[in-house]
Computed example of a mutant assay.
Amino acid sequence: MRELDDHAAHALTLVSPLAPVTVPISAALGALVADDCLARTASPPFDNSAMDGYALRAADVAGASEGAPVTLPVAGETAAGAAHGRVPPGTAWRIMTGAPLPAGADAVVQVEATDGGVDAVAVRSPVEAGRHVRLAGEDCREGDLVVPAGARLTAVRLAALAAAGVAEVSVAPRPRVAVLATGDELVAPGEALGPGQIHDSNATLLAGLVAEAGADAVVLERVRDEPSALLARLDDVHVDLIVTTGGVSVGAYDVVKAALADRGVDFVTVAMQPGKPQGLGSVDGTPIACLPGNPVSVLVSFATIVAPMIRRLRGVDRGSPAQASVVAEGWRTPPGRRQFMPVRFVSGGEVAPATAGGSGSHLVASLAVADALADIPAAVSEVVAGDTVRIVRWSP
């Protein structure tokens, strides 16, 4: 029986980071930056006014007060988007927020401290040099680092790049991950159930998990439990990773194992509960992870094996930082196997089992209340209230 850490490490050897692609910033939301993003221009690119008011020399209104305003002729006017002007000594220049500071001015008096004059303006308070002036490059200068490699491009980061003159970015592409749920017993959600049939929740579960992990899910149409049909379905798939569910154990109708065992996929048992039967390998050069068919097993297998593979494809070295929580309500664990118990957070950040049936791999409806997985070492036979457990999340 293979240890989970060894199995997960082997899974990572099957995938490599995808080559970066260059995209316009308008199409980069949520992507991971492949290279450091440097400012192409200074921000602001020129000295400009932070207020609607009057640009002038601070020395010209040093003695201004409410009772004795200083009146200056208005030599000109500049709005945002206009060219620079020039302020002669002893004059003021009407200016709008964001407009270039005219040459000769070293301060801006906000309009509220004046009478708002057009031809001449009465300034009712002094102003120090530099007041209400945004200096060129005070946000960033050309060549400054704006967004480091590995960062996720949020709306705010994209805005920062735009302000710094960056139009395109090199990003890690979203991996394309094919999802295939197998089993003659499966029917689409909402369809009437016949004898021995169940609704297919695994395709929905995996497609959502793949998307949450930062990849694009390609959901393949189910095929009958026939090896040749499965091989035909996989033959025309062009993706970065294939994930199947079901058909990997020792049953007479385990179609995935029957079809792929002699085609580059290694089927093993892993010392984990749930999720013991697993398959890993490549099919015609495409990495493939073959997971068990029970939904909780799928969730656990995704969190521990598939999600790290997707992160590697995206060029992400590690997942979320390790987290630990105190147990509010204990449970039994299987002997000799590492257990992953679906848990929910209760008051104070403590955790309790999310299901009444423990970590049973079929308890998919109960997952609706699960927040995370508790990772319990194989040597532990029972978890009791007050214990501290490691928490694993299936989404970033």
Rank of each mutant, 00 (worst) to 15 (best):
M1G: 13
D5E: 12
A11N: 05
L12A: 03
T13D: 14
L14K: 07
V15A: 05
S16M: 10
L18A: 08
P24N: 12
P24T: 12
A27N: 08
A28H: 12
A28V: 06
D36G: 05
S43H: 10
P45W: 07
M51C: 09
D52S: 03
D52W: 04
Y54E: 04
A59P: 01
G67V: 15
V70E: 03
T71A: 15
T78Y: 03
A79K: 14
A80L: 15
A82Y: 10
V87F: 05
I95G: 00
M96K: 07
M96C: 06
T97G: 04
G98K: 07
L101R: 01
A105G: 05
E112D: 14
T114Q: 04
D115A: 15
V118T: 15
A120E: 12
A120L: 07
A122F: 03
R124I: 06
S125M: 10
S125F: 01
P126M: 14
R134E: 10
G137H: 09
C140A: 14
C140N: 14
R141F: 09
G143C: 08
D144L: 13
V147H: 05
V147Q: 02
A149D: 02
A149F: 08
R152F: 08
R157H: 10
L158I: 15
V169A: 11
A172H: 11
P173M: 04
R174F: 09
P175Y: 01
P175V: 04
V177K: 01
V177A: 02
V179D: 03
V179I: 13
L186T: 06
V187G: 05
L193E: 08
G194R: 14
P195I: 13
Q197G: 06
H199Y: 11
H199N: 12
H199E: 11
D200S: 08
G208K: 02
G208L: 04
L209N: 03
E212I: 00
D216K: 07
D216T: 13
D216G: 06
A217Y: 07
V218D: 07
L220Y: 05
R222D: 07
P227A: 10
A229I: 13
L234S: 03
D240C: 07
I242N: 02
V243C: 03
G246L: 02
V250C: 09
V250H: 08
G251W: 14
V255E: 06
V256W: 04
L260T: 01
L260P: 01
A261M: 15
A261D: 12
D262M: 11
G264T: 11
F267S: 00
V268A: 12
A271C: 15
K276R: 15
P277G: 08
L280P: 01
V283G: 00
V283I: 13
T286Q: 15
L291E: 02
V296T: 00
V298P: 01
V300A: 04
V300H: 00
V300G: 00
T304I: 07
P308D: 11
M309E: 03
R311M: 07
R311W: 04
G315C: 09
V316L: 11
S320V: 14
A322F: 11
Q323S: 14
Q323I: 08
A324S: 15
V327L: 06
G330R: 07
R337Y: 09
R338W: 03
R338C: 02
R344I: 05
H362P: 00
V364H: 03
D371H: 11
P377L: 07
A379M: 11
V384H: 14
V384Y: 04
G386L: 13
T388C: 10
V389I: 13
I391F: 04
S395N: 15
